[in-house]
Design a binder for these strands. Sequence first.
DNA 1: CTGGGGAGGGGGCCC
DNA 2: GGGGCCCCCTCCCCA
Length: 607
Amino acid sequence: MQIFMHKNAMQMHARELQRGLGGEVKPHQCQQCLKSFSSNHQLVQHIRVHTGEKPYKCSYCDRRFKQLSHVQQHTRLHTGERPYKCHLPDCGRAFIQLSNLQQHLRNHDAQVERAKNRPFHCNICGKGFATESSLRTHTAKELQLHLGVLQQHAALMIGGATATPCPICHKVVFGGEALVEHMKNTHKDPNASGVASPPATSPYPAQAKPIDPYIAKRRTANHPCPVCGKHYVNEGSLRKHLACHPETQLTSGLRMWPCSVCQAVFTHESGLLSHMEHMRMEPKHQFAAQYVLSRAAAERRERDILAAVSASAGGSGLLNLAPPSPAHSDSSSNGRLSSSAGSEAGAAVNKLTDLLRSANNGHQAYGDERVAAIAAAAANMMAQPGEGANAVQVAAANLVSAMRQQLAREPPPAQPPAETPPAPSEAALRIQQAEALLRSQAEALRLAVSQAAAAHNTEAASPLRHNGGFPPQPPNDASGQLSPELVEAFRIAQEQRLEQALRLHDPRMLGFNLPSPVQQAAQQAAQQAAQQAVAAQQAAAAQQAAQQAAQQVAAQQAAQAAQQAAQAAQQAQQQHMQQQAAQAAQAAQAAQQAAQQAVHLQQNPQP
DNA sequence: CTGGGGAGGGGGCCC
DNA sequence: GGGGCCCCCTCCCCA
């Protein structure tokens, strides 16, 4: 590039010299501006500047130009041809004009220079800062904005691989059937199929009559972002905008592995890992590389540990649930407890599984193993003998309550008639939301377990207490054995945490040893985690109290308490007091759960 | 406000 | 002489 620039500069300089020294005669002068040209052809071309004449017309649209070359350049807008490609690794951008590529290359150089001057990078948005203090200021100021972005990402992640953008309007629908419905209803396409379009070499959808991107752009701002819905007048603006939505790579059900630093995308995890390995010393990639590589290593360790735990504890769990791994589940068991379980907890799990299945509206394969495993784990803990209710049991009750509430949630009041059941996409979305909720509940459960273990500090406590709720090794004796369902529940919680850490590029969530510049941030994160644990404990205590009160007094009082707590939660939410709202909501949940249990006890008095 | 890409247009050179 | 191509500047829009 440097050579190129020098060449151009030298050419320009040579021309100026030639003119300045009078080496070239320019007999053709414009009568309006008195400019001189060496040929009549150039003069005629120039005069069009004054007359406004545009003799060259685009064959694709109505635009006209003064020079033929400008038509040719413009035509690339219609054909999509981008002959000037950036040769730099991990870029691959292409341009219609060479000058745009040259400017782009200059921007690359400028970026490298800025990266040198700004070595402190935000783990979330990637912005660079010259000093650590300015980075801290940014982190404190932009936290709300970051949270918004992360929530947006999380919303799409709930959709996961079933989130499919419409090839015409780019609206995101969930599932192939929903896409078919959307194509029929919105685009009047009777031949719509849910099959994703083949990988397009062009950024525009493959159709019998291709859409002219330039015409489309000139007509209206009809380039909607499939994630946030904002519209852009041209493809470039949308593509630029899409850089802030890495999850838009999740099209056609094919999982992609994007680098959040340089926007490079890989079709396999190994590609991303080798990319990070290669870029780990580059300043902008430094943090992201460390976390991505660490996450991959941690996941490998997890898989090994789980395999060891399953091998040693398999079949000896309190609940004889089929192992959660898809490889071990089949259509006959389908996550349902065997009849040998026979316990009340087993019945509860079976009921929950049925609820899941009915709410799933026929999509039985979706997440059955996971949610059934969580339910089994929760019921398992509830059924364990102990000295009264403890935090773990209460948290488990909370989990089950949340599942019941989520699964019993009715569709919106304006229900369609019975002959027109809700669209499969809605049902699938509800299930996905339910799973997201259950995952967060599993995380809360993990916190409650570790908090309870730390508080009581008993020797008989679960082996979870020293490692954040995740069982790292097989138990030593039969009394300390964990059921595979419980292992799965905690594995899911851990997996969720890892996903968050990956998306945040935040080492604090992984608990790794950190380099000194980020230790302070890690301490802050640890404090926040401790606060969360305290909040969980408080909520659990409130639940416990409500549960006991309901059992001792009456279901009516508990129901009243639940109503009051729900009102408090609503009030707190209105005041944007999210933490208080969460606690109140948990209390409400617990009270409701207590009410249900009290009713159950009244109806089924136990000996 | 700044950075970056898209796009239009003027002018020069080569064949 | 004219067509074709290239270089470069500039403005606009968007994040």
